[in-house]
Design a protein around this nucleic acid. Sequence first.
DNA 1: AAGATTACCTGAAGGC
DNA 2: TGCCTTCAGGTAATCT
Length: 272
Amino acid sequence: MPELPEVENVARALQRNLAGRRCTGLRVRFAGVLSQSPRATRSALLGKRLEDVHRHGKYLILNFRDEAGSPAHLMLHLRMTGQLINLTDYHLDRHVHLVFDFDGLPVYYRDIRKFGRFTLVEDGRRPAALAHIGPDMLEISFREWGARVAARRAALKAVLLDQGVAAGLGNIYADEALFRARVHPEAVPAELDRATLQRVLRSAKGVLRLAIRHGGTTLVNFTDFNGRPGNFRRKLRVYGRTGEPCRACGTPLGRTVVGGRSTHFCPSCQRR
DNA sequence: AAGATTACCTGAAGGC
DNA sequence: TGCCTTCAGGTAATCT
């Protein structure tokens, strides 16, 4: 599932492979992934050059500009199963909803569950549509994060997943961050001391940076012609390892539900 | 007002 | 084999 590290890798691949190219075509096979009409989306993008790609949390914003200096900003969220694919010999299947053309280079949007969304916005950095989203998890300072979290009484994991507090952490990396910080997912932020909260934020940033370096956990790859998946899966210490021994202490890992999400943890390393 | 629940979708996996 | 249920999880909308 695309979380911050996967989205960051998509952003870098888009930047590397498409920046400087003009959007010269957009075929819409399923209009449900567009917030605006296909006609409006095409008219905003066609003929404009991709200048840069900005990421905020799990959102991407593609910034375009035409020769006359007129801009366009396309925001997208891959949600659960969205993929951007940049293979020249790609074989279309029924899950490919958009086909962009960048000066002859095809870019496919594939999304099995159709949760992803492309939205034209009016600003390339902080559009109004993201006003309720907090600072990016990799950029937020402890001063700010700590202040936002200090009074919360919901389970810590639920607060980590709350994109209004800080944006980018999803279910997989929330579990990994809590394990690395040795804090129980149901701990109450308001009851934790400063050092523990600092450890949680540091662990969250650490696991995100590590996953970015390993290409993420999803299979989105722009440069690679065989669509090689990210290889962070091997590095996961708790997610999806229920019943298997903790890599730190050997205790069988537990699974519970926090904030409606499946939650993996070590009952011995992560005490309440 | 924060916290909890549901809707949105499809495919995989498990039970019978 | 095939039908049915459950689960997966990001976000917005809707409830309490």
